[in-house]
């Protein structure tokens, strides 16, 4: 195999994932409708996994969960090697930062935790 084959494939695959996950330009030659179907499907899968891992955020955000998650996801595509739990934690932190979720109350050292 030539290094050229690997390089050409790397470019093409990166271009496709950037388009599907991060709102990058559509790579040439693909069916635009199918690109949209695929992008939606990948987003729905990711949203479903985060919803399963962060049910309290889903409850708190209610109807706002989906649009907020979709905005977060487009701006923060999953990085290779990252874990789903990290994705869920990053989303809740992002939602907190923009005031959509209440801030985490710092634990007071004198509070009795066992009640």
């Amino acid at each position: 195999m030539t290094d050229g084959a690997r390089e050409r494939l790397a470019r093409a695959q990166a271009e496709l994932l950037t388009a599907l996950l991060a709102g990058g330009p559509s790579p040439g030659g693909f069916d635009e409708r199918l690109l949209r179907v695929e992008a939606r499907s990948l987003l729905a899968k990711r949203r479903g996994i985060v919803a399963m891992l962060a049910p309290e955020a889903v409850d708190a955000l209610a109807d706002r969960f989906r649009p907020l998650f979709d905005e977060y996801a487009l701006a923060h595509p999953r990085v290779a090697g990252s874990r789903a739990r990290e994705d869920a934690a990053a989303f809740t932190a992002w939602a907190r930062d923009r005031g959509a979720l209440p801030p985490v109350k710092p634990k007071r050292w004198w509070r009795r935790t066992a009640s």
């Binding site: 990166a14 499907s41 990085v79």
Partner: peptide, 8 residues
Amino acid sequence: AGGLDSGH
């Protein structure tokens, strides 16, 4: 690819 993970 390109440092991203498609998740599927």
